[in-house]
Amino acid sequence: MSHLLIDRQPLGPGWVEHWVLNDPASRNALTGELVLALGQACARAAHDPALRAVVLRGAGGSFCAGGSLGGFASSLGQALAPGQPDPLVPMNREFGQMLEALCALPQTLLAAVDGPAMGGGLGLVCCADWVLATPGAVLAAPEVTLGIVPAQIAPFVLRRLGDARARSWLLGGERHSAEQALADGLVTEVVPDLNAGLTHRLQALSATAPGAVAATKALLQAGQPPLPAWLDQAAQAFASALRGPEAAAGLQAFAHKQAAPWRAPDGSTRA
């Protein structure tokens, strides 16, 4: 079964594609295969002049629960020998490369969010030009509550929200409702029905000239600081955190529905 479904539909004289994250059992978690598929879809779309818009959404009532840590399980809390290169670094960096490709799409990118958009899923949302969310959407960057660094998504959250709000989201780890995300500038519209909201928004977008949209997006990208070196540093931070004791303890506590060792029993912070 493909975990990325692509549905191409007419939009004026061109096309819109719906890219559907399709693994409801995991709430559409970002596996290596899904990240690769998204990267390949971006590479193809970047050279498709007939494609005018891309809609990114999730199947089964969830947008994306975040990165799948299954492939990292054997590395949790395990230090490397001195001088040994860490295979976690390029694995994490590949996700950032895919996020860069999403941001660089010449087409308008819309994110349609229902249910959870967590961690890496929040990173996907931050790449969108337009974000529609249902009242049931829940968005968060919970990595620090698990002893992990929100490494590759941090630059994209900062770009989207600005410094103060990005710090609140990334350092607090709290969940945010669609209305809260709207107030912070992450969500563009809260709509009761995603399909109806998308139909209305795509109709409005059909009035925009594809070449002008692509050129405007390129200008916006050029006005931002370069990402590659920042994301390289982020991948190192992610790998170091995952191999450290906090991630091992935090993820074990999460898996067993227990409080992490740094959390007080009642959920308050220890003084």
Rank of each mutant, 00 (worst) to 15 (best):
P265D: 00
A215N: 07
T31I: 04
R44S: 12
P226K: 02
L219H: 11
Q180F: 01
L219T: 08
A239F: 11
A79P: 12
Q233L: 14
D7L: 12
E246Q: 15
G71F: 04
A183N: 04
L36W: 14
A41K: 02
G121D: 08
V89Y: 07
G14Q: 01
G244L: 10
P87L: 03
C127G: 00
A196Y: 03
V187N: 03
P82Y: 00
L146I: 10
S206L: 07
P155D: 01
R44M: 09
L4V: 04
A111M: 00
Q224D: 06
P142S: 04
A241V: 00
Q233H: 14
A151Q: 10
L5F: 09
G121F: 10
W15D: 07
A81K: 08
F254N: 13
A53Y: 08
V125Y: 00
L146H: 13
L194M: 02
E17N: 06
H18D: 13
L80E: 09
G66W: 03
A259I: 08
Q252M: 13
P49V: 02
A141E: 05
D266S: 04
P142Q: 02
A212C: 06
F156Q: 08
L231M: 13
S2E: 14
Q152I: 06
A81I: 01
R263E: 14
T145M: 10
P210A: 10
L109R: 00
P116F: 00
D48E: 12
G77N: 06
R93G: 03
V144T: 15
L38F: 04
P155I: 02
E33D: 15
L251D: 08
A239E: 09
A140P: 07
L11I: 07
L105D: 02
Q9G: 04
R27H: 11
A37W: 03
D184W: 03
D7P: 05
V191T: 08
L171F: 11
D114W: 07
L227H: 05
L194N: 01
D114A: 14
F72L: 14
S177W: 03
T134M: 07
L220G: 10
L38E: 06
H3S: 13
P155A: 03
F95W: 11
F72H: 12
R159C: 08
A241I: 01
G162S: 05
S168Q: 15
P82C: 05
K257I: 03
Q258Y: 03
L139K: 01
A128F: 01
G66Q: 00
P142G: 07
R201W: 09
L109W: 05
L102E: 00
G267R: 06
A241C: 01
L34S: 05
E143N: 15
G96V: 02
A111C: 12
G14Y: 02
L242K: 10
D129A: 04
K257L: 12
T145Q: 13
G60F: 05
G77V: 02
Q40V: 09
A111Q: 00
V190F: 06
A181T: 06
P261A: 09
P13G: 01
A234I: 12
M118N: 13
R270C: 11
S62A: 15
L171G: 14
S26E: 05
L194H: 05
W230C: 12
R175E: 09
